[in-house]
């Protein structure tokens, strides 16, 4: 990098969005939450809608999402983000409203709110981070925990006879007429990140057109909860999560 002539001719090709605060994320090393936060804020910045956007944070690791996303935000009770978002969006029908929820929040305690919000076709974007574990409380079994996956409350592995099956919420909501756009994405590779950002952009664009609910699942990693290092968590995600939660669109306007 001693070649100063080259440095002078460099142009900026990527910087983090100014809608993302400079505060250091409290997430564990390698955690996908940071990428998901950044992508949402990149889209908000690129669309120029930060003055019209209201986010709803969940309970879980991303409970402090409002420390990082520099838009107006509300902190919902565990599982109630979709109801809170409904209240906001009904009062402010021309604004952009999104929820950011983990698997415990959205697919266990908040199942009813999620299903009914999508079924009403609320004009909101739901971002669903699925890492198959309760991260914040220390790695307990989640509704999306895989069969035989070891967690601190399924120490011998998730036995479906006793603990039920992994819940594929995204497949479930795709069947609802209120869902306009349903997709499953990930953030573990550069390509996955590019696709995920496109999906997030779609979700906001459809909201602008008052098309109904957009639902974007983001399959993510939890190195601490999975008890692996960040690099291995990417491999674990590919080997175990993706077969159960395959990436791709589940409902695309005009195609279903």
């Amino acid at each position: 990098m001693e070649d100063n002539t080259v440095l002078e001719d460099l142009e900026l090709v990527y910087e983090k969005p100014h809608t993302l605060s400079d505060t250091a994320f409290h997430y564990c090393p390698g955690c996908g939450h940071g990428v998901a936060h950044r992508l949402i804020m990149e889209v908000v910045e690129e669309m120029g809608i930060e003055e019209q956007t209201i986010g709803v944070a969940p309970v879980g690791c991303s409970v402090f999402a409002y420390h990082y996303m520099m838009v107006d935000m509300q902190e919902a009770a565990h599982g109630r983000a979709c109801a809170v978002a409904t209240g906001i969006r009904r009062l402010l029908p021309e604004k952009y409203v999104f929820t950011y929820q983990g698997d415990g929040d959205l697919a266990a305690i908040g199942t009813a709110e999620t299903i009914h919000t999508v079924n009403r076709g609320e004009n909101i974007a739901i971002f669903f981070i699925n890492n198959a574990i309760y991260g914040m409380t220390g790695g307990q079994m989640a509704p999306t925990t895989l069969c035989h996956q070891i967690t601190s409350t399924s120490p011998y592995g998730r036995e479906v006879e006793a603990m039920g099956h992994p819940l594929k919420m995204t497949d479930l909501v795709a069947h609802l007429p209120g869902a306009y756009y349903v997709t499953r994405q990930a953030v573990h590779t550069p390509n996955a990140v590019r696709k995920c950002k496109k999906a997030i952009r779609n979700a906001f664009e459809y909201q602008k057109l008052h098309k109904g609910t957009s639902f974007v699942e983001i399959v993510s990693n939890c190195p601490s909860g999975w008890r692996v290092n960040p690099a291995d968590s990417i491999k674990w995600l590919e080997d175990n999560m993706l077969p159960m939660y395959p990436l791709g669109d589940l409902k695309v306007p005009g195609k279903n």
Binding site: E11, K16, G30, H33, P190, R194
Partner: peptide, 28 residues
């Protein structure tokens, strides 16, 4: 090393948004 091409892959996957990426301009 100085092999960087400014492809942004590092910035895309970085969970902590630590990267700002520059690339040689087309004019140069």
């Amino acid at each position: 090393n100085d092999a960087c091409t400014g492809c942004t892959n590092c910035a895309l996957v970085c969970p902590d948004a630590v990267f700002t990426v520059f690339r040689q301009s087309k004019s140069s």
